[in-house]
Simulated scan of single mutants.
Amino acid sequence: MLDEGFTYGGLLMGLAALVLWIRLALRAFPSVETMIARYQDEFVVPEARSHGELGRIAACATAMALTFSAIGYAIPD
């Protein structure tokens, strides 16, 4: 029972980490309006986005998912 909790907890934490990494990847690309404005030679204010905090949370969630999964698979039935 304890091993299943760690195993499935690690899987759920891994899914949450995957969602966070996908969100970071999507935020890395400029918006469509920004790309259109670049081609129309308009003044574009650079988008100030801070990815530091979300990146740290995603890295911690990934590490926790790996740890929980490893513990869950290491505990004998």
Rank of each mutant, 00 (worst) to 15 (best):
M1F: 11
L2V: 14
L2A: 15
E4A: 15
E4D: 11
E4Q: 14
E4K: 12
G5A: 14
G5L: 15
F6W: 10
F6K: 05
F6L: 09
F6I: 05
T7D: 06
T7W: 05
T7I: 04
T7F: 10
G9K: 04
G9T: 04
G10L: 03
L11E: 00
L12V: 12
M13E: 07
G14V: 00
G14W: 01
G14N: 02
L15E: 01
L15W: 03
L15I: 13
A16D: 00
A16N: 04
A16R: 02
A16C: 13
A17R: 04
A17H: 05
A17P: 01
A17C: 03
A17N: 02
L18A: 13
V19T: 10
L20D: 02
L20A: 14
L20K: 05
L20Y: 00
W21T: 10
R23Q: 12
R23C: 06
L24K: 09
L24V: 06
A25M: 13
L26C: 03
L26E: 04
L26F: 08
R27Q: 10
R27D: 10
P30K: 01
P30D: 00
S31W: 01
S31M: 02
V32I: 09
E33P: 02
E33T: 10
E33D: 11
T34N: 02
M35T: 06
I36R: 13
I36F: 05
A37T: 01
R38A: 07
Y39S: 07
Q40G: 00
Q40W: 03
D41Q: 07
D41C: 07
D41R: 13
E42H: 12
E42R: 15
V44C: 06
V44Y: 02
V45A: 12
V45G: 05
E47Q: 11
A48W: 09
R49C: 03
R49I: 13
R49V: 15
S50E: 11
S50H: 11
H51A: 07
H51G: 15
H51W: 08
H51R: 14
L54N: 08
L54M: 14
L54G: 11
L54W: 10
G55I: 10
R56D: 07
I57M: 15
I57G: 01
A59R: 12
A59M: 14
A61H: 04
A61T: 11
T62L: 13
T62K: 09
A63N: 02
A63T: 13
A63H: 02
M64D: 04
A65T: 06
T67L: 15
T67K: 06
T67F: 15
F68T: 02
F68P: 00
S69V: 09
I71L: 12
G72C: 04
G72D: 01
G72I: 00
Y73G: 06
A74W: 04
I75V: 15
I75Q: 07
P76A: 09
D77S: 12
